[in-house]
């Protein structure tokens, strides 16, 4: 792994809800342009950690910077520098494709010209130009997903958080989606992704696996597979999560 400029740094990240420790001393760094897989069973504490990194929730303790900004004091700056896409896609179903772009562009303060240019760029790339004025809810799931991803990176964030972005889509669309992820990472945007598809874990540069609020493993898929003597990430995950 070549040394890259780090863009997320979490040192001793801890979050407690009362007596319950949701995140227990997490330590990790994510580099610029890296595809970082953030895995874990339901309830392992992934969502809590992502909320902290996105500036939506305050950690109980720890030193955490995202895009160089402190999560305690510079949350607004963090929000300007990240994109977020969840499994629910956060598209306005009753607006047209372009209206969605215009809205999200507006939120991030893009000028009319920028919005138009970037919209055209993404629609052209996705081959959806002719659907610019179609209402979202008329479009198939796979397209919505790609549009949602485009919206999350519309403002050229430095990091994009993807929370189970590929749930339920067909295998070909899922792979097309990962092609998009690679392209974005190639452009220098860091991709922080959670998924329940273990084959997708293999697509990541490095993955961390959370069990019961702690990071149990963090490395490249190759190293992890060797370490746990299994031939797939599925095996790694099962070995680790079963322990917990």
């Amino acid at each position: 792994m070549e040394q890259r400029e780090s863009i997320i740094e979490a040192i001793n990240l801890t979050k407690k809800f009362g007596n319950f420790v949701a995140n227990d001393n997490l330590n990790f760094m994510v580099g610029k342009g890296e595809i970082f897989g953030f895995l874990g069973a339901n309830g392992a504490g992934k969502t809590t950690a992502i909320k902290i990194l996105c500036g939506l929730s305050r950690p109980t303790s720890g030193n955490i910077t995202v895009a160089g900004f402190d999560v305690y004091t510079e949350r607004e700056k963090i929000k300007k520098n990240i994109g977020y896409m969840s499994q629910k896609f956060s598209l306005y179903e009753d607006l047209t494709v372009f209206e969605n772009f215009r809205f999200y562009g507006g939120i991030y303060g893009l000028s009319k010209k920028e919005i138009r240019e970037r919209t055209n760029y993404f629609l052209d790339k996705l081959g959806l130009m002719e659907y610019k004025d179609k209402v979202i809810n008329e479009l198939p799931l796979g397209w919505k997903q790609k549009l949602a991803f485009s919206l999350a990176i519309l403002h050229k964030p430095r990091i994009v958080f993807l929370d189970e972005p590929t749930g339920g889509v067909d295998p070909i669309t899922r792979r097309q989606f990962w092609d998009m992820i690679y392209e974005v990472a190639n452009d220098g945007i860091t991709v922080f992704v959670t998924t329940h598809y273990m084959d997708e874990a293999e697509y990541c540069g490095r993955v961390s696996i959370m069990v019961d609020g702690r990071i149990e493993a963090l490395d490249t898929p190759e190293t992890l597979k060797n370490k746990y003597e299994v031939d797939s990430m599925d095996g790694v995950f099962l070995k680790l999560a079963r322990k917990g």
Binding site: N42, E164, G167, F237, L238
Partner: peptide, 10 residues
Amino acid sequence: TTGVDAVSRK
């Protein structure tokens, strides 16, 4: 098993 982690699925 939709949205459920790999362990629970198994």
